[in-house]
Design a protein around this nucleic acid. Structure first.
Length: 670
DNA sequence: TGCGCCGGCGCC
DNA sequence: AAAGGGCGCCGGCGCA
């Protein structure tokens, strides 16, 4: 029987660029009451080393990857043993456990007491205080003065003998070690009453991914001062020009802030008193006047249309510039939430704009080269695998395995032609062939999630500027007749011909991939009359409870991709940190963006760099083949090397097939 | 003044 | 019958 300890470190405060600050003390607890112990830094080092050495010892913690990061920074010789223990499944985390339980119950992200979304306490979705309230019925967030007060001040006690510590400083870590262990045990009891054992069998995989991602956070990424400055100048200039322009219309106040109420009035007037509105909420039962870009662009009012076109610089200025500037001094530490309801990872660093120069501000450290590897068409593959498991076959899988271009395949069905007949026409860039391939691509990526005809037409127009009726050549004038369409509760006016095209080819899309027709039918049957239903995320066998129609369709293929990507994340990270024989050793993971891993690879030797990049891609392909076994022959992932982050970075090889570092075109010319 | 809600928008 | 899913961040606004 394994022996389970809770383990919690106290440290100097976290600072920008320092996510693993110096250790001050640690606390541990066993199941027996009174077993809590406070350990000095020296005692903690010794205890932790011995705990790693004992194969029957398991550790649980509240955000344990943080404590592991602290211990590894304190003594890098422990890194190998930490990764080995994680591989053996000896680490636990009460926040991850709670997320798994909640996902099974369909309660993830919701406070069951209030029914409201959970707050965000220091980035932890499940702070210990919440778990203590749920499992132990104690409110520890209320006593502001009591032990917590020491939480951020342990640096002051560094080097002070434990006997001389004030009572509060001793109590706080002992209390948390006790609570953490008690919560862990309570979760184990709760799991036995929840469907699928509360998903706890998946804890090890999630903890391993969490460790890999937290270590990536600790390493962080740097920005280039010159390029950030350039971006700042450009954005400020454009922002000032916009502000001056729209101030005249009263949309901005003299102090530079936006007058949203005034904007709503202008929109209302432009729409002759009946503007598009937002979905009803408790505070606004009638909804509010919509002011999104599409509403502005369609308003027929010159100033509002200009405002709709102007939007982006605000976001750059408020969201990115400050962070990019901070990154020139200390590494930026992205934050990762390892487990959201579909099993995907979320992060504050997954939304870098593709265009506009924000990505390009990030530069690899001296001696390192960025390596980005993303899976090609990942969710098409997981969607196909899901269909095979759920309905027994998948034409999409057949096409992918036959190395067909599946967008051309679907377009062939749209046009009533054979794939072999259409492919040469696509390659020759014949107009009808390419426009129907574009149409098919939008359906391939959107329709499987359960998007309706109106929603498809709206999203294609809003996101990609695509108008279905023009694409399919059924009308010359788009938008003359418009019909209301509900999109995420919001009423949008969309071109009637586009919706008609969407309906027609949506049905043809189901002819192209008949397994989807079967899946749609099941989704409808299961969720009739708004009934919520459980769905299994295949591969990891994680149950998501309480799903709607679209969630039932979406979750399995989105989740399956996440499961494979997390497995890859762990394996890549493990070789980087703990496998001296791997070409990846000494390189560092930087980011995970759903179907993409970004790393800083050691760049001192070209041969080694090539080997590292190829190894990273191979580990990723291998992991995904394991979770999509029937698509194993169709998994694609190729490395791209670059000095700066860029959406344009591509795989470049020399005549012998060795990887080269991609160079942006503009810099080549310079 | 602080906080929570809300709309809007970035990404996959 | 119809139904995009998943996130995180920011500014404005209204309430306490």
């Amino acid at each position: 029987m394994p022996v389970l300890f809770s383990f919690d470190t106290e440290t100097y405060p976290i600072q920008p660029g320092l996510l693993a600050p110096p250790l001050v003390c640690a606390s541990i607890a066993l199941e027996a009451a009174g077993s809590e112990q406070l350990l000095s830094a020296a005692q903690a080092r010794a205890w932790f080393r011995e705990a790693l050495r004992a194969p029957d010892v398991e550790l649980t913690g509240a955000n344990l990857p943080y404590d592991l990061g602290v211990m590894c920074a304190d003594d890098p010789r422990l890194v190998d043993a930490v990764f080995a223990a994680a591989e053996a499944g000896r680490f636990h985390d009460v926040a991850i456990r709670e997320a798994l339980l909640d996902i099974a119950r369909g309660l993830h992200g919701v406070d069951p007491e209030t029914g409201r979304p959970l707050g965000d306490d220091e980035g932890a979705r499940y702070p210990l205080a919440l778990l203590v309230r749920r499992h132990l019925g104690l409110d520890i967030s209320a006593d502001k003065h009591a032990p917590d007060a020491w939480r951020l001040r342990y640096g002051e006690l560094d080097g002070v003998p434990l006997e001389e510590w004030p009572e509060g400083a001793v109590k706080y870590p002992l209390r948390d070690a006790r609570f953490t262990l008690d919560v862990h045990l309570s979760q184990a009891r709760a799991a036995s009453t929840i469907a699928n054992g509360g998903n706890l069998h998946a804890e090890g995989d999630q903890v391993r991914a969490a460790i890999a991602l937290h270590f990536a956070s600790i390493w962080g990424l740097r920005t280039h001062a010159g390029r950030v400055e350039q971006l700042r100048r450009r954005v400020e200039q454009e922002w000032k020009a916009n502000r001056a322009h729209f101030q005249a219309a009263g949309i901005f106040r003299p102090n530079g802030t936006k007058d949203s109420k005034r904007l709503a009035q202008l929109v209302t007037a432009a729409y002759n008193g009946s503007p598009p509105v937002t979905p009803p909420s408790s505070r606004f039962p009638e909804g509010q006047v919509a002011t999104d870009r599409d509403t502005l662009l369609d308003s027929g009012d010159t100033v509002l249309e200009e405002l709709g076109k102007a939007g982006k610089v605000d976001k750059y200025r408020s969201t990115y510039l400050g962070k990019l500037e901070a990154g020139t001094a200390t590494p930026l530490n992205p934050r990762f939430n390892v487990l959201v309801s579909t099993t995907r990872v979320s992060s504050d660093y997954q939304q870098l704009p593709q265009r506009g120069g924000v990505r390009e501000c990030h530069e690899a450290r001296p001696g390192f080269v960025f390596c980005s590897v993303d899976y090609g068409g990942l969710e098409l593959r997981t969607m196909a695998q899901r269909a095979i498991w759920d309905v027994g076959y998948s034409r999409m899988a057949d096409a992918l395995l036959a190395k067909e271009d599946v967008h051309t395949s679907a377009a062939a069905t749209f046009l009533g032609e054979s794939y072999d007949a259409l492919l040469p026409r696509v390659k020759a860039k014949e107009a009808t062939a390419t426009s129907f391939r574009s149409l098919a691509k939008i359906f391939n990526f959107g329709k499987g999630g359960g998007l309706g005809a109106g929603g498809m037409a709206y999203h294609a127009r809003a996101k990609d500027g695509v108008r279905f009726c023009l694409l399919a050549k059924v009308a010359d004038t788009c938008g003359v007749e418009r019909v209301p369409v509900r999109v995420q509760g919001k009423v949008k006016m969309v071109c009637a011909a586009c919706v008609e095209v969407s309906r027609r080819y949506g049905d043809r899309w189901l002819d192209a991939w008949p397994e989807q027709r079967a899946l749609f039918a099941r989704a409808s049957a299961y969720t009739r009359n708004g009934q919520l239903v459980d769905v299994m995320i295949p591969g990891a066998d994680i149950l998501r409870g309480g799903c709607s129609y679209t969630q039932w369709l979406n979750t399995p293929f989105q989740g399956l991709g996440a499961v494979g990507a997390k497995l890859a994340t762990w394996r890549v990270s493990r070789e980087m940190y703990a496998d001296r024989r791997s070409p990846l050793w000494g390189s560092r993971l930087i980011l995970m963006v759903h179907d993409e891993l970004v790393a800083e690879l050691r760049g001192d030797c070209p041969n080694r760099l090539h080997d590292a990049a190829e190894r990273m891609a191979e580990l990723m392909r291998q992991a995904m083949r394991e979770v999509t076994p029937d698509l194993a022959g169709a998994i694609e992932a190729e490395p791209a090397l670059s000095r700066v982050l860029s959406k344009d970075a591509a795989t470049v090889r020399d005549e012998r097939g060795r990887l080269l570092v991609w160079e942006p075109v503009a810099e080549k010319a310079a």
